[in-house]
Amino acid sequence: GSPLAQQIKNIHSFIHQAKAAGRMDEVRTLQENLHQLMHEYFQQ
Rank of each mutant, 00 (worst) to 15 (best):
M38C: 13
Y41A: 05
Y41S: 03
Q44G: 10
S13Y: 12
L30N: 01
M24K: 05
L37Q: 01
L4R: 03
Q44Y: 10
Q43K: 11
L4P: 03
S2P: 12
N10Q: 14
T29R: 15
H16W: 06
Q17G: 04
R23T: 02
E26S: 04
K19S: 06
Q31W: 10
D25W: 03
G1N: 13
V27D: 01
N10S: 11
R28V: 07
E26V: 12
M24D: 08
L34Y: 03
L30S: 01
A20W: 03
Q7H: 06
Y41G: 03
L34W: 02
Q17F: 04
P3I: 13
Q17L: 12
S2N: 13
M24A: 07
I15E: 00
R28H: 08
N10I: 13
P3G: 14
N33W: 14
H39M: 12
F42N: 07
E40C: 14
A5V: 13
K19N: 05
Q6L: 05
M38L: 14
E40R: 06
H39R: 12
F14R: 15
K19A: 09
V27L: 07
R23H: 08
S2Y: 10
A21Q: 09
Q31R: 12
H16A: 14
V27W: 04
L34K: 00
F42Q: 09
R23A: 05
I8S: 00
M24S: 06
R28Q: 08
R23S: 04
Q17H: 07
Q44R: 06
V27Y: 06
Q31V: 13
Q7F: 08
Q7G: 02
I15Q: 00
G22N: 06
Q17D: 10
L34M: 05
Q7T: 07
K9T: 06
R28K: 11
Q44P: 07
F42M: 11
D25M: 05
G1E: 13
L37K: 03
N10E: 14
T29E: 11
L37M: 06
F42P: 03
R28N: 05
Q44K: 10
R28A: 10
R23P: 01
L4E: 03
M24E: 07
A21S: 06
Q43V: 08
Q43E: 12
E32Q: 09
H12D: 04
K9Q: 09
E32P: 01
T29G: 06
Q44M: 10
G1C: 11
R23E: 04
G1W: 02
Y41N: 04
H35C: 12
N10P: 01
L4M: 06
N10K: 13
I15A: 00
T29M: 13
I11Y: 04
Q31G: 04
I11N: 02
I15T: 00
M24N: 06
K19F: 06
M38R: 03
Y41H: 05
A5P: 07
N33F: 15
E40H: 05
I8L: 04
I15G: 00
A20I: 12
P3L: 14
E32Y: 06
S2R: 06
S13P: 00
T29N: 09
H16D: 14
H39G: 05
G1T: 13
E32H: 09
